[in-house]
Design a binder for these strands. Structure first.
Length: 782
DNA sequence: CAGTGAGCGAGCTTCCGCTTGACTT
């Protein structure tokens, strides 16, 4: 009989803890929640808000094991995380495993070290039912919102859509940013930079300076340059200020995702997958955390490492404090388990992510960087505006030696970093070498990418470390947003140069505002967002989560009954849902009238159809059925014109007849095609379906026939189900619905293969079932 | 991977947070 059973949430944690506790303790893992609301049903009694929980099928085996072990154990220690969800996990375990109060102890620890765990064992407590109820409130509220709102969308917009407290607000952020960008008006300005040399100085010393104002247009800029022709330039003032830079806090899930995106180009899902592997192999601490806290163990180890590698002067121990809204801090920050491991073995991706985590952690315990910033003001005779030259000298690099935080792009923000100024003194005369006025255009705010969206959600306190990556994939799966590249705008920028006594003008070709991997809303996303915003503004409010979190806190503190909160919320919410569901409207959500079809006189409009955005001519009430056309990918509900919409109805069109049946041309899922006698032939790339002639179409049909004949390379009478065919990727064997690739040597004489040879290939490849292509190429860890 | 080119209807879809599972090159 086992004396003690400890249950934690994660198996990797279980393994570590078991080592600390010795033979009297068995440590198992619950793998997160073991029980939840039923998956497919609403599962909430709306009279008293009693939830109906079930153990999901994939957990039954585990739960049975836990039950058996608990029965055998003298004491069961519930050691799930110290946060709302963790408390609920303990409570569910208590209920499901049928534990008795005298047999059960609830413990928590803040770091996975032997003293911390022993300390926890010394100080057990009871399950905090208020905290559990706060979790139930959270769970039930999310279910109500999700399962009541989604069906409204199915009815009003399109089947299989979804809405939720987190995802719908994430989409809102992206839609609103896109609108801002659409409304953005770029403004022109001229910034002026100059190159000076100190009078009677030695060759090669130059001073770069920028004018402390900008000009609205070319005329003003030119006038300024004209005035500079005869002006004198004098150093009016030199100021030197010491500056400090402090390191960033150690990684949380969200900051790790941001930095890995910036520095390593990982998606948030990639980052989490790689971090998970590092965690499982014991390299780093837990990767889903909102805490910037470091254990004393880690701080001490970091100090030692810094001393050894860089010297005492570089050490500065710090404890950071979480400022994030709604943080629950059940774990440490993400850090290496062993700080003295400066690098690890593994795939290149694992090594790079580890390196990033190591550097960030070490830097957080290092001294400030000391910088000396020099600003020289250069007076222009007869003018109010002045040039400013800035230079920066790093006096002591401190943490910058190992880590530099990256920032969101801002092309206008040019730093003075690394820019050195020669020795200068006040009153010194400068000679102008060159002054340039550079045309600039203000840029629209950047679209979100995955990482910057996570950052924003975290700022708003929406979502949790464990859900950032899944949320981002959900809103893409629902096709509310798509990740894409935006072509920039080609622009010709004017450069005016004053050199000697002459002002010249050049033009510089540049691309402005090009973006990669950004999240762009789709029509469905936009329509759903506008709809929800109109009918459920409270849920869509950026502060909704923060407000309900406050109420959850009250429940956790025992100030409010959780069912009362549900009653209040549901009482307001449910009537709105009913009202919206039953509202009769003449037009479909998101519908937009474009005009009249000149041919039939019927209205032409766009809407979200059963299968996405469509153009429709005529209505269902007409005698004739309405005509539909799927919109193209690059078109949008909001911007498509009547002409573009009518264009979509020009296909399919008949070209004429060939061999007695019509030849027509259309466009489908895979691009334009020719249709003849029920057979399809794809149009080769670059052919315009609107201008293809009958002759060209017939040629394509005949070519396809020829290829079809040549496709059959070999057939056997004894085995009619087997055939050697010629495909896009060379010859292959088709047998009973499966395809088998031919090895090179056999492919060369595909026409002469024997049945035996073919069967051998089939047999061999059947025995070694091919796997689907995998991205995972990591080497096996021992 | 190996050829594709719908649908207008039955039944289904859906939330957020905890946690990993199991395929082999």
């Amino acid at each position: 009989m086992q004396k003690n059973l400890v249950i934690v949430e994660s198996p990797a944690k279980a393994k570590t803890i078991e080592k600390f506790l010795g033979a009297d303790y068995k440590v198992l893992s619950s793998y997160g929640h073991i029980r939840d609301l039923k998956k497919k049903e609403f599962s909430i009694d709306t009279t008293n808000f009693a939830p109906q929980y079930e153990i999901p099928s994939e957990k039954t085996k585990l739960v049975n094991e836990l039950k058996a072990e608990a029965k055998n154990a003298g004491t069961v220690w519930l050691a799930s995380d110290e946060d709302r969800e963790g408390e609920a996990i303990s409570w569910h375990l208590y209920e499901v495993l049928g534990l008795k109060p005298e047999q059960t102890k609830r413990i928590v620890f803040h770091e996975i070290t032997k003293p911390a765990i022993l300390q926890a064992i010394e100080h057990p407590r009871d399950i905090d039912l208020n905290l559990v109820n706060a979790q139930q409130a959270r769970r039930v509220l999310d279910r109500i919102v999700g399962f009541k709102l989604s069906p409204v969308l199915w009815k009003k917009v399109k089947p299989a859509l979804s809405a939720g407290r987190v995802q719908s607000v994430a989409v809102r952020l992206i839609v609103e940013r896109e609108r801002e960008i659409q409304q953005f008006k770029s403004e022109e300005s001229y910034r002026v930079v100059a190159l000076f040399t100190p009078a009677n100085s030695k060759e090669g010393t130059e001073i770069k300076a920028e004018l402390n104002q900008r000009f609205k247009n070319k005329e003003e800029a030119t006038r300024f340059l004209e005035n500079c022709k005869d002006a004198a330039f004098t150093i009016r003032d030199i100021a030197t200020r010491p500056q400090k830079r402090t390191p960033a806090a150690p990684f949380t899930t969200s900051t790790l995702q941001q930095e890995a995106a910036h520095k390593l180009g990982f998606t948030v899902a990639q980052t989490m997958m790689i971090a998970q592997r590092l965690y499982e192999s014991g390299r780093i601490t837990y990767m889903r955390t909102d805490s910037v806290n470091l254990s004393s163990l880690c701080i001490n180890a970091s100090t030692a490492v810094i001393k050894e590698l860089m010297g005492e002067r570089y050490v500065k121990s710090r404890q950071f404090h979480t400022k994030t809204k709604g943080a629950q801090e059940a774990h440490e920050a993400i850090r290496p388990t062993y700080m003295d491991q400066t690098e690890i073995e593994g795939t290149p991706q694992e090594r790079r992510l580890y390196d990033l985590i190591w550097k960030r952690t070490v830097a957080s315990q290092m001294a400030d960087a000391e910088i000396e910033k020099t600003t020289a003001t250069i007076q222009i005779s007869g003018q109010d505006a002045a040039f400013v030259a800035t230079g920066e000298v790093i006096k002591f690099d401190g943490f910058l030696k190992v880590y530099r935080e990256s920032f969101d792009e801002d092309p206008e923000n040019e730093t003075a970093e690394g820019n050195l100024l020669p020795p200068m003194e006040t009153g010194q005369q400068l000679e102008r070498k060159e002054i340039q006025a550079l045309q600039r255009f203000t840029q629209h705010p950047p679209r979100y990418n995955e990482a910057s969206l996570v950052k924003k959600l975290e700022e708003l306190g929406i979502g949790r470390p464990s859900t950032y990556a899944p949320t981002i994939s959900t809103i893409q799966q629902r096709e509310y947003v798509a990740k894409g590249d935006k072509e920039g705008e080609e622009k010709e920028l004017v450069i005016l140069t004053l050199k000697g006594n002459c002002i010249s003008q050049q033009a510089k070709q540049t691309v402005i505002g090009a973006e990669r991997g950004k999240l762009v809303p789709t029509d469905v996303g936009t329509v759903v967002n506008d709809f929800l915003l109109q009918y459920f503004p409270e849920i869509m409010d950026y502060n909704f989560t923060a407000e309900v979190e406050k109420k959850f806190d009250d429940i956790a503190e025992g100030k409010t009954e959780w069912t009362q909160m549900m009653k209040d919320f549901y009482g307001d919410f449910e009537p709105e849902v009913e009202k919206t569901l039953n509202a009769k409207s003449e037009h479909k959500v998101g519908e937009r009238l474009l005009g009249t079809d000149p041919q039939s006189g019927k209205p032409v409009f766009v809407k979200i159809g059963r299968f996405g955005p469509v153009v429709q001519i005529g209505t269902a009430e007409d005698e004739e059925k309405p005509r539909f056309a799927q919109m193209k990918n690059e078109q949008s509900l909001e911007t498509i014109t009547l002409e573009e919409a009518l264009e979509l109805f020009k296909l399919p069109r008949d070209l004429g007849t060939f061999e007695g049946t019509t030849v027509s041309i259309g466009t489908g899922r895979f691009g334009p095609y020719v249709l003849h006698n029920k057979k399809y032939v794809s149009l080769p790339k670059g052919n315009d379906p609107m201008s293809v002639t009958l002759q060209e179409a017939i040629k394509l049909i005949l070519e396809k026939r020829k290829a079809e004949v040549e496709r059959h390379l070999r057939k056997f009478e004894e085995e009619p189900e087997l055939e050697v065919l010629n495909g896009r990727y060379g010859p292959y064997i088709a047998y009973k619905g499966n395809n088998y690739r031919l090895p090179k040597t056999l492919a060369e004489r595909a026409k002469e293969l024997t049945l035996e040879e073919c069967m051998a290939v089939v047999k061999e490849q059947d025995e070694k079932p091919k796997t689907t292509a995998r991205k995972r190429t990591y080497s096996k860890k021992k």
